[in-house]
Design a protein around this nucleic acid. Sequence first.
DNA 1: AAGTGGTCTAGACCACGTC
DNA 2: ACGTGGTCTAGACCACTTT
Lengths: 231, 231
Amino acid sequence: MTTAFRNWQAVQQEVLRRIHAREWAPGDLIPNEADLASEFGCARATVNRALRAVAEAGLLDRKRKAGTRVALQPVARATLSIAVIRQEVEEKGARYGYALLERSMTRPPAPVRAALNTADATLLHIRALHFADGAPYALEDRWINPQGAPGVLDQPFETTSANEWLLEHTPYTRGDIALSAQSATVAEARDLGCDAGAALFALTRNTWNGPVAVTRVRLLFAPGHSMQADL
Amino acid sequence: MTTAFRNWQAVQQEVLRRIHAREWAPGDLIPNEADLASEFGCARATVNRALRAVAEAGLLDRKRKAGTRVALQPVARATLSIAVIRQEVEEKGARYGYALLERSMTRPPAPVRAALNTADATLLHIRALHFADGAPYALEDRWINPQGAPGVLDQPFETTSANEWLLEHTPYTRGDIALSAQSATVAEARDLGCDAGAALFALTRNTWNGPVAVTRVRLLFAPGHSMQADL
DNA sequence: AAGTGGTCTAGACCACGTC
DNA sequence: ACGTGGTCTAGACCACTTT
């Protein structure tokens, strides 16, 4: 006799067990929801909830009519949590500091124009440093579209970072992120207090609110920085 | 009169609209599920589904009894999809290539032992190169615990990468990932065909199957590599 | 103690994709 | 055409927290 699986977490655990134990091997078609429900002694909605969760984790492929199959090559999905830099620093138990380096209205260089699709508009350009315990932590290079961030031109950003202000005052509907590595230029090395040519972790992020570009920011982290995530 | 919101996606969209329009401002307590259900003209379960989805995206904080609040600082969550390297290369439209550099049973250095918590066991050490259109794409440095990957010792890994074999044959229950930037050592530069000291994007990943370590891998990507994700 | 979200149920209908 | 997952409903009970 099988124990009854009364809640969706229990069903999920049993499904995961069968996958890991290869009772359901990669590529296999598993029983449909109705059959599993009667086997597990619960409602179909409960099985659905469990299978949906496992599918979202990438271990199952579900298709109407075709049924549910164990994923052949489970694509690992790591979820990065990207918080405000001040939070990130303080969560590491360090004292946060901030300094504005530059604030101007400028026509951005071609790559920025292309990424934001803002043609030849003049954007607010902010360069700033974030510190952890007095040491440079990250160098922020940001372009803000005043059209997409009402009120931004009234902000001096001398004590509060654009990073923080935008998150609280400017909604966005979509965005993308790119992570990469790059060598520190002489200027960047000076700002970050490292050697020129040092390997830096870079995060570039664009956000939009509907069709209108809000901001593009490139964060260069001091050498040794790493981002963690769980699978 | 309000239009009826008949499905959870429509409810979700309306909730997002209210958050973005600041009708529900950060920190605000929003109406409870029952009230929203009657306002939207749908069942409470439908509202629940929608609110749960928004909360999973980080825009709402939900607590029993305390109610649902708009998140003060929505933590951006970027989901990285980490596929098999061969897939990754082929999806870019390039021809994939693979070469084994080293295969041995060795006692790993301290950092690896510590990360995997394998005490002084002897592990399988694999070093290999992945190519895209003939050019080095990524350098793989991997340690495999034979205890966690039955059958791995029978694999030569001369034509099929450990990356691929493990994903298909070895289940895991948890893992972690770290992303960072580092300078190429002389040896790494030789393998990757770049200059020593070049900034490389590094991905280090540990996986376990329950309490037993399965593998630890460090992937060093050729200069210029970036990882993309959406928000 | 009471209010809120979390979940389960049984049944129903629908949408999609394969056959 | 038809089988499968996707979703909705109405009602119910439970679990967690705050009051």
